[in-house]
Design a binder for these strands. Structure first.
Length: 425
RNA sequence: GGAGAAGUAUCGAAGCGGUCAUAACGAGCUGCACUCGAAAUGCAGUGUACCUACGGGUACCGAGGGUUCGAAUCCCUCCUUCUCCGCCA
């Protein structure tokens, strides 16, 4: 959520920045109109309340003095009615303003390339060389099915399209990846491991920006008005919401494995085969809660932390910075990490690392105090996948496949797997 | 799921429908004094947000409603925690 004060004071720049994302259905001009109205109403009602407080205090005094309070009470009753009326109006305007602010995306960082979509993203760096195959390589869905470690058909029978059953060494590999990633983040990169709820309430989803705009993409439990998490970013970022954190505690580094649930509404026909786009997938997520002046350094480190996973697995990747038009709703700046996927013949997104600055912190009300006497300030929050496990699984199958259909296990995973290859039984 | 109890500022905790609630009291924290220094002690200060004609004003006692001239206090709904029972990995 943007600061209404900032919108007021720097209106032209904020508006220009938002509009660099491309067309949106939000009306920024209206925030000022509503805020003006809010201020007027507040001034009016607060003056009346001041009078009400003052006059009401006279009643016990008058009673004590034996005076008649009937007239004053009648007067105050009228005043009270007027205040109630104005209070309703204030509440309405405030709600309308908040609802509007909740639909306005974050202002992109000025360094993000201006552009309308992913075609304007800019490659920052590359690591590793895509493998040249001297045999006809297969896609991971065929490899997985042939090795009998992935079962898409029976998953469809259980649940529907875009679900997968991992079987035998497939399940083992998925679990190995989760453990490998978590160990790396915890032991070498200083993150605190968390296991969070996979179901969260509406307020929590609002805090990170999934709601109110993207409710259609989320799995909703109607009876209790709760949601299946679309990413661990949601519970991890909101973990300290509504708190004023002691500055000495910062920065906070959290990591968690969760399954992620997404309806993938609007992506019909895209990536229909394989593990790339599922309704339920596993992900290890990293979240940072930091002081504002450090957040861009932290973003670089966060991105490096995610890259380390791919480097240790020996998977070729590139890092791109998203254009303003492709940057997510809550983010000010985002690096995507894309892994080389032979079946696609291109790099495929496997991690997304974002600095949301104070956008989520405002929504979730996460503040900190630099020292005992300082005023509370909003923190900056960052999140990044480290990594999407299913896509990593797919990348390993495809990049490490052998001519006979077997798959070599990357060095770093062998301790978790207890073997160095998966082959047909 | 059933019965009961409780949610007050950083923590503990008091609080009759108003006149010592701008939330007592205790602890913590900050500053000062005392001290070679520390402890102990003493004194002072110490919530958040919004509005502002910068003089002040308003709101917040789990959340949201209601009654009243006036609500932390009375009523209703919901949430959370604790205890007991039931069920259960």
């Amino acid at each position: 959520m943007l600061d209404i004060k900032r919108i007021r004071e720097d209106f032209d720049n904020v508006k220009k920045s938002i509009e660099s994302r491309g067309k949106g259905d939000y009306d920024i001009d209206r925030t000022i109109v509503l805020d003006d109205r809010r201020r007027d109403l507040l001034a009016e009602v607060e003056a009346l309340k001041a009078k009400q407080n003052k006059e009401s205090k006279r009643i016990p005094q008058m009673k004590k003095a034996g005076e008649d309070t009937t007239e004053l009470m009648a007067e105050l009753k009228e005043l009270s009615a007027k205040i109630s009326e104005l209070d309703v109006q204030v509440a309405e305007v405030q709600k309308e303003l908040r609802d509007l602010l909740l639909t306005i995306p974050n202002t992109p960082n000025p360094e993000s390339p201006i552009g309308k979509d992913d075609s304007d993203n800019v490659e920052i760096r590359k690591w590793g060389e895509p493998r040249k195959f001297d045999f006809e390589h297969k896609a991971h869905w065929d490899l997985g099915t042939d090795l009998d470690i992935l079962d898409f058909d029976r998953a469809a029978k259980l649940s529907g399209a875009r679900f997968t059953v991992y079987k035998g060494m497939g399940a083992r590999l998925e679990r190995a990846l989760i453990n490998f990633m978590l160990n790396l983040h915890v032991e070498e990169q200083g993150y605190t491991e968390m296991i969070t709820p996979f179901i969260v309430n509406r307020e929590t989803m609002e805090g990170t920006g999934q709601l109110p705009k993207f409710e259609d993409d989320m799995y909703h439990l109607e009876e209790t008005d709760q949601f299946l998490v679309p990413t661990a970013e949601v519970p991890l970022t909101n973990f300290r919401n509504q708190e004023i954190i002691d500055g000495d505690e910062l920065p906070l580094y959290f990591t968690a494995y969760t399954p992620c649930f997404r309806k993938e509404a609007g992506s019909a026909g895209r990536d229909t085969r394989g593990l790339v786009r599922q309704h339920q997938f596993n992900k290890v997520e990293m979240v940072k809660v930091v002081k504002p002046e450090t957040s861009y350094d932290e973003l670089e480190k966060l991105t490096n932390d995610a890259e380390a996973v791919l480097q240790k697995l020996g998977l070729p990747y590139r890092v791109i910075v998203l254009s303003t038009g492709d940057t997510g709703f809550s983010a000010a700046k985002t690096y995507d990490i894309e892994v080389w996927m032979p079946s696609y013949g291109r790099y495929v997104e496997i991690s997304s690392c974002s600095n949301t600055e104070d956008f989520q912190a405002r929504r979730a009300n996460i503040r900190f105090r630099r020292d005992a006497k300082a005023k509370p300030e909003f923190v900056h929050t960052l999140n990044g996948s480290g990594l999407a496990v299913g896509r990593t699984f797919a990348a390993i199958l495809e990049n490490y496949q052998n001519e006979d259909g077997s798959v070599t296990i990357p060095e770093a995973l062998r301790g978790f797997m207890g073997c160095d290859r998966i082959e047909k039984k």
